[in-house]
């Protein structure tokens, strides 16, 4: 976390050096600060912060892509006369363990491709998901586990 503080500090110093405290300068300072941290951090032995940020960015890109794709798919389904949906409710066994991991996973699933998390079993081991565009339950579960869950846990852990 101290690397993050260093990054923020560098951004603030940048705005001071430029002499204008605007959003653009702050963002620019943050980006430049991140570059500095990315170079300095490996010298200290750990590059956790840098790795986390790059993974987080990759996840954000993945999430945006899925968000747009899922919306186009639903839009196509709504507009064209025939319904292509094959809705099913599947039980997804979870690798995510802590409450925040499960919450984030369930939230992201609801926002992305044809899946909507309905409920979590009381022992927090299975997430029940309403999936719209999978051939069969196995495929739906595989898509969720190897798509969203794997990538999310990669960022969080």
């Amino acid at each position: 976390m101290s690397s993050f503080l260093l990054n923020v500090l560098l951004a603030l110093i940048w705005t001071m050096a430029v002499g204008r405290f605007t959003l653009q300068q702050l963002v620019l300072g943050f980006l430049l600060g991140f570059l500095v941290v990315a170079i300095v951090e490996p010298l200290q032995g750990t590059s956790r912060y840098t790795r986390r940020v790059t993974r987080g960015l990759r996840f954000a890109a993945f999430f945006l892509k899925e968000l747009v794709l899922s919306n186009l798919r639903i839009a196509y389904d709504v507009i064209t006369p025939r319904l292509h949906a094959r809705p099913q409710i599947v039980a997804v066994p979870l690798d995510a363990q802590t409450e925040s991991e499960i919450t984030l996973l369930a939230n992201f699933l609801t926002l992305t491709p044809g899946t909507l998390s309905l409920d979590l079993s009381s022992d927090k081991r299975v997430l029940y998901v309403h999936a719209m565009y999978a051939e069969n339950p196995e495929q739906a579960i595989n898509q969720i586990k190897q798509g969203m869950e794997m990538r999310l846990l990669e960022v969080l852990r």
Binding site: Q88, V90, A91, N107, T110, L116, D119, H130
Partner: peptide, 30 residues
């Protein structure tokens, strides 16, 4: 982004419990 999934989860659960049948191929929640 934070509230929509929460509302959907709560409403979906309430609907399922109140007996709104899903039109599905397979229902592992049954």
């Amino acid at each position: 982004v934070l509230t929509t999934p929460v509302a959907a989860h709560l409403l979906g659960r309430a609907a399922y419990l109140s007996g709104v049948r899903p039109w599905v191929l397979q229902d592992e929640l049954a």
